[in-house]
Design a protein around this nucleic acid. Sequence first.
DNA 1: TCATTTTTGAAATTGAATTTCAATTTCATT
DNA 2: AATGAAATTGAAATTCAATTTCAAAAATGA
Lengths: 147, 147
Amino acid sequence: MKLNQFKARIYKEGLKSTRQREEILNTFLNLSGHKSLSQIFSQVVKADPKIGYTTVYRTLRLLTRLGLATQRKFADGETRYEPTSEGTHHDHLICLDCGKIIEFEDQTIEALQRGIAQRHRFKIFHHRMELYGQCETCRRKKRIAHR
Amino acid sequence: MKLNQFKARIYKEGLKSTRQREEILNTFLNLSGHKSLSQIFSQVVKADPKIGYTTVYRTLRLLTRLGLATQRKFADGETRYEPTSEGTHHDHLICLDCGKIIEFEDQTIEALQRGIAQRHRFKIFHHRMELYGQCETCRRKKRIAHR
DNA sequence: TCATTTTTGAAATTGAATTTCAATTTCATT
DNA sequence: AATGAAATTGAAATTCAATTTCAAAAATGA
Ligand SMILES: [Mn+2]
Ligand SMILES: [Mn+2]
Ligand SMILES: [Zn+2]
Ligand SMILES: [Zn+2]
């Protein structure tokens, strides 16, 4: 149960535990995936119509600060959030037709990236790698539509 | 001289060659690097104070469409443009302190990316890879400042 | 309960990106 | 050189997500 971790962190930071924050965290974790603020908001509102957009916005930033959420900015511009995956970093394959997002890890690439940084005497803090294209499902649909 | 290529392309598309477009292309090419619209605009204005921001905006999009400019959206959010580099694709190392941008190519990584896509039955159209960190110059400055 | 501090949510603001539209310019054709 | 259709320009307006403001409400702990 992440809720207790959250409450503990909140307390440690001198912040307050509220009904809204708990509801938002809960909804966010159940939602999974890579969701935009408005997607998260409309889900939160279903559970409690009194919760405001601003509160969802602020809570997602808080979760990001606490390490429970990870912020992503893919090429479409809208900021997305995903529950932080334990320990591992991953990158993304994104379908430009249907928006499907597949996660992947590649240690060989990560090692090569470190090599590149070293060669240019950079100290890397984080990186971003996204592959944009078309998933198999969408490719099939297009083929059929083309006849 | 890219200007003639540009005029030829403009003509082929049924568009018109104007003083503004020529000035913007010229300034953009001389500027080099990865420049934001406002950076390009303020340079263009030096050459001709009558040219409007909107025209610079539209011309950079036109250049992008024609393949003469490449649009980049790094993590800072502001859209940047760079003259399209012939033939080769490249990725970027970015210093979070001074904004310095270093370009690199790595065929091994590119091949691994193709492998990942294939394994997930994706057809890739383009990708983006950026390594964010601190350049050597900035690291040295920080060290000195820390005493 | 009381006092202090934080949080909430509606509304306002920001800032880059984009669109609108009337005036101007281009350019092929006289 | 003059004409006129089509494209372009630039100032202003609009959009839209992100962020800030601020007064009212809620949480915490003495
Ligand atoms: Mn992910
Ligand atoms: Mn570049
Ligand atoms: Zn798809
Ligand atoms: Zn630097």
